[in-house]
Nucleic acid binder design. Sequence first.
DNA 1: CTTATAATTGAAAAACACTTTCAATAATAT
DNA 2: ATATTATTGAAAGTGTTTTTCAATTATAAG
Lengths: 145, 145
Amino acid sequence: MTAENKKAAEWIKLLQNSGYRQTEARNTIVEVILETNRALEPLEIFEIARKRQAGLGLVTVYRTLERLEALGLVQRVHQPGACNMYLQAPQGHQHLLICTSCGKAEFFNGDDLTPLMETVAARSGYQITEHWFQLFGCCADCQRK
Amino acid sequence: MTAENKKAAEWIKLLQNSGYRQTEARNTIVEVILETNRALEPLEIFEIARKRQAGLGLVTVYRTLERLEALGLVQRVHQPGACNMYLQAPQGHQHLLICTSCGKAEFFNGDDLTPLMETVAARSGYQITEHWFQLFGCCADCQRK
DNA sequence: CTTATAATTGAAAAACACTTTCAATAATAT
DNA sequence: ATATTATTGAAAGTGTTTTTCAATTATAAG
């Protein structure tokens, strides 16, 4: 059993524990998300998944993403070109690093941001509750090309 | 002449220097953006502007925003709820602090991010070219309420 | 000031992305 | 095996953004 299969089984289990049923459509959609290392739009997920499961509906992709996001398994990603992309969520709170060439997404820790946020809070008078931090660049593989 | 009027005149001038014409529609749209301290959706701009200029079309708002953004006068802002909002762009590269209650937007400098970005670049092998950093919170005025 | 020009406009239609509705189907509990 | 109920895909509906187009208006030229 590969790492992806194992994670897929975990996700399905979590869905079931929340009262959702295991279906072919959900299995396929979960697999597609887990084996992709970049954020995907609903339509992209649909097109990949449809090749494996004829008859799958785009609506089901939207509905499954909604449930996966509510369970915190998937994360919505905003990018300049598209702001409704979905990616497997990391452990805890992490920040994204995205390759502008191939789209590959990696997470990193941003604990270092706390002092800056405190300075901004003090200067502005705002009580800061949330932050978005995302880096864009060219990954090692794409630099070689 | 108020500060907003002065800035509006500058923007119109810049538009003209780029080969665009001065029109009533553009004047009104520019004024609305300049006197608002929060990011607005095209439809919001349209509704405010229409009260001052009957007959204005929503299409014109979209087209004007496109030009203003191309000239760097206006900046597109992504927020969890809406990712097509527009705000007067700051001098140089700055980061946003947005009040989740009233929407008020302020800019701040984020020079402190450089060391973190260098660390991430070194660890990941990415060549970092761009970053998004945005803070959300409750502004001083809204805290009092 | 008058005329020629080319950009700009708003209306309408089209394109697009996403959501809702609904009857048929399929997963799960009994 | 059966009953229950979530899930499904198709179709219709909604909201947003873009395109098309003829009429209008700003600007440059005379």
